[in-house]
Amino acid sequence: MKKKVLTVDDSRTIRNMLLVTLNNAGFETIQAEDGVEGLEVLEECNPDVIVTDINMPRLDGFGFIEGVRRNERYRAVPILVLTTESDAEKKNRARQAGATGWIVKPFDPAKLIDAIERVTA
């Protein structure tokens, strides 16, 4: 069965890149535009792994990760953070919120797939 990835990113460009990369790699991809939508979609899509951006309107990545981890059903789903910041402080916050790992932008399809494979069976 195809693995299901939920991506949460407010940038149309990045959303499209994620979609193309993940579909090409044989994943099923569900997309949301910000944290609020991400939490809404989460309930229906039951993803195997989540990839989320940090800087988003309405609900940012930190809030979104906390939201997922509070949810009994999804608190153990691997969450990868897409981040341009290489600064440790942001990553640390993401980790404290419950992120599993991260992918440092600039967006690189190979890196993305590697990272997903590292956290999913």
């Binding site: 460009t13 800087n55 988003m56 967006f107």
Partner: peptide
């Protein structure tokens, strides 16, 4: 302020993916 920051951040993110170094 957040919206302003996000705008620049998004441009940087996309530009990085396309290797537009000057922009990044």
């Amino acid at each position: 302020v957040n919206a302003v920051f996000r705008a620049v951040h998004s441009i940087k993110g996309g530009a990085g993916a396309f290797g537009l170094d000057d922009l990044v």
